[in-house]
Every structure is written in structure tokens, then in C-alpha cells.
Design a protein around this nucleic acid. Sequence first.
DNA 1: TACGGGCGGGG
DNA 2: GTGTACGCCCGTA
Length: 820
Amino acid sequence: MRFYPYDFQYKVKEGKVYVYLYSKDEEGKKICVVQEHPPFFYAAVKGIKAEELAKQLSGLSVEDKQSSQPAKVLRWEEAEKELIGKNEAFWKIYVNYPKAVPLIAKELQERGLVTYEKDILFIHRYLRDIGIVPMTLCEAEGELITSSRFNIKIPVFMAQEIKQVSDKTTNWDILALDIETYAKNKEINPQINPILMIAFYGIKEGKKFKKVLTWKEFKNGVDYLEVVKDEKELLERTKEVIAEFSPDILTGYFSDGFDLPYIKTRAEKLGVRLTLGLDNSELETRNKVSFRDGEAKITGIMHLDVLKFIKNIFWGNLKTDTYTLDAVAGELLGYKKHDVDLNKLAEYWDNGDDELETFVEYNLQDSRLTYQLFVKLMPSIYEFTTLVGLPAYDVIRMRFSRLVESYILRRAMEFNVIAPNKPGGTEMEQRMQESVQGAFVFEPEPGLYQDVVIFDFRSLYPTIITAHNLGPEALQCKCCQGKTNVPGKEEYWFCEKKKFLPGVLEDLIIRRTDLKKEIKNLKGAGKDTKFEEARSYTLKILANSFYGYLGFFGARWYCLECAASTTAYARDYIKKTIAKAEERGFKVIYADTDSCFLLLGDKKLEEALHFMDEVNIKLPGQMELEYEGYFKRGIFVALKGSEKGAKKKYALIDKEGKMKITGFEVVRRNWSSLAKEVQEKVLRLVLEGQEDKVLDYVRKIVKELQAGKVEMKKLVIRTQITRELSQYKSIGPHVLVARRMVERGDVVVPGLVVEYVITKGKGLVRERAKLVEEAKEYDANYYINNQILPAVSSIMAVLGYSEEELASDEKQTGLGSFFG
DNA sequence: TACGGGCGGGG
DNA sequence: GTGTACGCCCGTA
């Protein structure tokens, strides 16, 4: 029997532990493969008499209040395993059910034994034990069960043996869901307010599926709308729609924290049992620490919340820093949510207004966006799942530390390595106090530069860790003492024999290097490389996470010495690169962590590339200095009120006129769009060699401001209300504006973004802050001195206009009178 | 500059 | 569910 398992659970039946693998078979039908698997953990037995230990273990049982039976030791066997580089003796201790593991382990711990691997999820342990990878092709030997012994909606196959066949996968049926709720005055409360609509969007067997359910009649021309009697029926239909579509993957946007918990709460209130699970279990929601950590699980269906994956894993690929569906869809898909006024929904609902049709379309659009986002992210989700080898449900809900650790745990099985224990409370507190010295950043000299060439080390930290074997097993070994010490950290040295952790990392790097070649070939042959590219990205960020993992306080393989040595080597390499460049006659103007900026001067690009080759010949392992690019011009500015060059703040322009801007505040939200526009334009003029035009340009803007010709909307400043208005101790402009909004009857709740303009008149700035529609005349001087000047002064200082010149002249008018 | 509190996503 | 674990930004002291 061949199948693709995708969701997993275990059950204890008649004293035996069974794993249920919800799977698709090769025809695309669902099947549940069941296999027995024993729970176990390890105990270190070095220096303990075997008979003594056997006496302790035999017949050991611990009372379990949660269970009808006590936790029991069933049997044990000897096992030699490697712990932090040393082979040691352990006993593998089998118990009667998964939850017995921590109970028995705790008991033994209290009796003075040291126990290991007692806090690994049983399903995770199982997948690693038998060496299968979710969502890929497996094979089982066994038989179909015909009896109804199992209360399962799909056929059950009892397996004696299961093994991995290949990394082939299959098609997955995906259904996206989105709800709209009654929310008068933005009140989002499932205890009070009903669900008004539910939208579904999916594709099954090549056919588009779209549906919106609602329980109000109104005139409409929407063919995918289904009107039911009431909210209760809406929930019943929801259950049916999902069951009929029978998705492998159910997706939503914040559905872990909003849609599914909301549905669950309403269902409970209305007495609807949401038995969506393939084992007839109900939709399960739980809140962890807070609402934001909630999860929603359905047995036999992968519920994958797009937002979870983005916030945990994919954020590094996005420019946006707000993860609203609108922003994320806009960036990844290029189109957005429908523009409706959500505050009107409740009102229309109460009146049964025909306008409700626009909300039906809005609702469907959200589910469509969610579906399309999911499809777009699917290659990445799939690659993380198969690389880490755990269920997709778990993987998308992990942060990098746990992804890395899960990956290492799987590899540990292959190398007979036992996992070190997680730190306890005090150990962790101590670790949280510790930190390591970071990267080297070269202090640039403020100025304008020409012919800038940038080199950078490809995956610097991972390649340092593998090239120098920076793993906990290799730290300060006896055999290599006195050979090579870490530069600048002479108290550390690392064994020259390749060890487990750096080896695991090296595999990731090599796999990626090979994959990149393959991608090149595939592309050359005109093939689609979506999944290969997702895999390459996955390998890269997992490798990049190892450094952080080594210094992460909760890590099993924590090694602060390794993390400190990684940055120490990095500082050494970049400084040596700088020295070498200078030796070859290049002026180095900047460097940060793994990059080095130099000036060509009177040399050719070929000579710079030759310098790079010279560096590369001497680099160990996978380390490599790469050519990042050539830039016509670049500008580095000074720190405010200082001669010193600002780090991580510069702008460059390439031959095609494309600007690379780093660190300039153009993106900050509480700046007017005018300030952003002026800053960007000034940078462009400077970098395009038209610095003589800068003064005229800024003058022009200043004049326009003074003449009152600038559009109001370019002067709008946005600030968020973050608490109840009465709670503010310091009254900023936005608070006063919000108070007036309340007076005129607007709903002001925390989260509202107030948009205001500073106007002419007497008094404090905050007293002159007005809503756009209230504002008659903006305060030109405010915008000149508080928006334009700060945005351009550091850039103009490089051109020789001093801060005093710009600002001092006359205090009241400042820049205005200077430029005037 | 150090610390504590609140936010995020969703309607 | 054999699982403890949020991290960043803002405002205030």
C-alpha cells in the first residue's frame, strides 16, 4: 500500500499505542494508516550497577491522575550513544503510553538518574524513529481493516511496517475560508456578535469552488451566494461544505486566532457540534499564552494559517512590516482587498440593505486572496516540512530556533547522537544574561564617493562554523590543544576532526550549492524551478539560523563559546579583507559584518576582481568572497551633531540608475509624504551628479510651502492611538486631535490611526494639529523646520551646507529664511 | 539609556 | 499534549 501521510495523531487502545497517519493514496483518496509504536526515553547509566538499576526499573509504576492506569516501565535495553561528542552508556526505557514518559522520567530523575529525550513529542519521535517524511511517498505492509473497530470516516489500513519510498509528493486539495462578523463600533466579540457570512474558495480536481453563506435575504446578483435560515444553519452548512469538499489543507488568514475560534465559540453557543475531524472529533481550538498564540486543529485536515507561516518564517522575504492581509497580498500577489467601509456592515445587516452584496464580494475576495497567498507560499511550506521532517501543521507554527532544533534532532538519529536536555529554569535565566560580541562595522567618513565596488562573504556565519568546526562537541578538545586558537578569543580552540553539529550544517550548505547548479541547468532547459528555488531559500535560512541557535537560551545544543567564536572569526576575516584591499592599493570606505566597500580609484574593475580571487584562494572550507556589485556613486552621512560617519546609513546608485538606500528614515510612518519625497529626490540628485541642483530644488519646495501651494495630503502625519484617551500622560498632537474626534461623534478606539496636519496659529504644536478637513492653512515653518530640514540636513551637510547655516539664521524661520 | 507595557492579526 | 517560554516598539523615568 503506497500513500502520502500528512496529518498524525496517536491513540492508546487496549494498552497499546497506535499512530494514525491520515494520508492520501496514489488515487488521491484519503486513507488512515495505523501502526503500533512504543514510547521510550533514555537514562544515562555510566557508573551505575546494572543489577541495581534493573531492580529499580522492574515493575516500576507511577500513579497518573489523568489516566485510568498507572505509568509503567515495560522493558529496557542497553544503548551506546554519543552525547556532546562522547560515547556513553545509556539504557533505553520503554513505557506503556506516551504520557508515561515524563512521569517515569521524573521519578527516575528524583532517584538520582539523569534522563534524556523525555520531552520530545511522541508523533515527532515516531516520524524520526521510522524515518518517514510527511507529504512524501511511503509504503506500508499490512491489511485493510473492515470492522468498525475504529471510529474513522475513511478506510483504515493496519500496518506492520512502514518505510519511506521517495521524496515524490502528490496534489493537495486546498480550501480557504474567511468569516465576516457583526461588529458595531468595532466590537469583535464572539460571545455577543454573530457570524454574518462565511466565504470559501478552493480548487478541486481542476475546478474552481467558490461559495458564500449568509443568513439574511437581500436583493443580489451573486451566483455563489447561499442564503440559509439563521446562524445555526450557517454553521451546520459550513460543516457540510467542508466535509463535501474534503480538503487536505484548510487555510485562512489569522484563522488560528480569529476565524476558527470565532466559529467554535458561536457553534458552542448555538449547540452545533463541529465534528469536522476524520475521526469524528470536533474542531479543537486552544489559547496558549494569549489570543495571539491560539491554534485550531482538525484531525485529518491540515489547518494551515497563512499568517502564522508568514510571521514565523517568511517575514524575511517581505518588505512590509505590517502583516495585514491587505499589505501582504498587495506585496506578494499584486492585488488587494476590496475597499469597503466595514463600519457599515452591521448597519446594513440590521436594515437588510441591498448594499450587503458588496460585503459578500468583499468576503469572497478575502478568501480568494488567502487561497492565492497559500498557493504562492505552498512551495516554501512544503520544503520546510520535508526538510525538517515534521507535520506541516507543526512546522508553520514554529520559530527558527525550533525549526533548527527539529532538523538537528532528525539528523541526530542517523549519527546515533542523543539530544542534550533543554535547560531548566535557573540555567535558562543565566543564559539569558549572557551575550556575545557582535560584528565589526567600519566607521565611514562622511562624503560623496565614486566608483564604489562591494564584495561580501556568502553565508559568512554558516561557512565559518563549518570551516572551523565550531560545535559544542569540538570545543577545547584535548587532542588539538595549542594548535589553532580563535582569533581574539585565544581561550577557545576547536577540534580539527569534523563533529556532528558543524557536519549537519555543512550538509545544508553543500546541498544548497549543488541545488543552485541544478536550478541553473533547469532554467537553461526552460523548466519551472519554483520548488527548487523554495528549497534553496529554505536551506539558506535554516543554515543562517544555526548561529542564532547556538546562542539561543532555550537551545539543547546551546554553545555560547561557539557563537562568540563565530563572530570573532567573522571580525577577523573582514578586517583581514580590508587590510588586503588596502595593501593592493584600494581605499576602503565602509564595511559591515560580511561586506566590504572599496573605491576603484584609478584601477579597473578587473583588478578588484583579481583582489577578490586572491582572497578566495586562502579561504577555508565553503567560505567565499563574492562580487556584489559596482555603483557609480555613493553617499555616506555624518551622525547628527557630530563629525563621525553614521554606520548602516548610506545610499548608492548603480549604472542603471537604481538606488540602494539603507538606513535613511524615508520609510518612517510618522513622517509626511512630502518629507519622504524630498529626501528621496535629494538623494537621487546627489547620486546622479546633479548636486548643484539640490539647493534650488529644496528652495523650490520651501517656497511652495511658504506660498501655501503644497497639497494638504502630502503634509498628513499619521500616528496611532495606542490606549484609552484618558490614559495618556503626555498629550501629543494626535491625542488632542482624537479628543476632538470623540467630541464630534467619531468612534475612537486604541488602534485608530489619526491623520492630522499642523496648521498656522498661536500656541503649542499640538494645539495646532488639525484633521485634514478642519485644516485651513498649514504651518509652513513647522514643515520646513520639523520635516524638510531633518530629512535633508545630513545629506546637505555632505555637500557643504553646515547645520548652522541651515538652521541658525533666524530661530523662528530657520531654513525658511536661509533658503528664502 | 534602562525598563515596563502593550501590540500584533481579525470585523 | 512525552511541548512552559513572544519579541519589538514606544513611552516614561
